[in-house]
């Protein structure tokens, strides 16, 4: 196998392949976001992530001001399968910072 071919991005899914064993950010439908380490994916963008932090955005009424506020609910999941049809975007890890 050509080493250059292995490391280059010719088509969108190559970017996902290069993110294997790295932490990625996933934006999902229904105002959900995931951060976790990528271990598996397929062409439908089904994925397996580990040490996942999920953030769900919910709208709540502030009891005092009666204003609607957006609250983030977070939870941690050790090992998670994500079905690809709920995925909106995937971002590879930031190499800086």
């Amino acid at each position: 196998m050509d080493k250059r071919e292995e490391g280059s991005v010719e088509e969108p899914l190559d970017l996902i392949r290069l993110s294997l064993d790295e932490r990625i950010f996933v934006k999902m439908r229904q105002d959900r976001e995931l951060r976790g380490k990528l271990h598996a994916y397929d062409q439908h963008l089904n994925m397996i992530l580990s040490d996942v932090e999920e953030t769900i955005k919910v709208v709540e009424k502030d009891e005092e001001t009666d204003e609607e506020i957006i609250r983030n609910i977070k939870r941690n999941i050790k090992m998670l399968f994500v079905r690809g049809d709920g995925v909106i975007l995937i971002s590879p890890p930031l190499r800086t910072s």
Binding site: R29, Q30, D31, K57, I88
Partner: peptide, 19 residues
């Protein structure tokens, strides 16, 4: 209510995708 607040805040695209 949720869709309105989220769309106004620019935090969601679900309402645009209309799914």
């Amino acid at each position: 209510l949720k869709r309105r607040v989220m769309t106004e805040s620019g935090l969601t695209i679900d309402s645009i995708l209309n799914i």
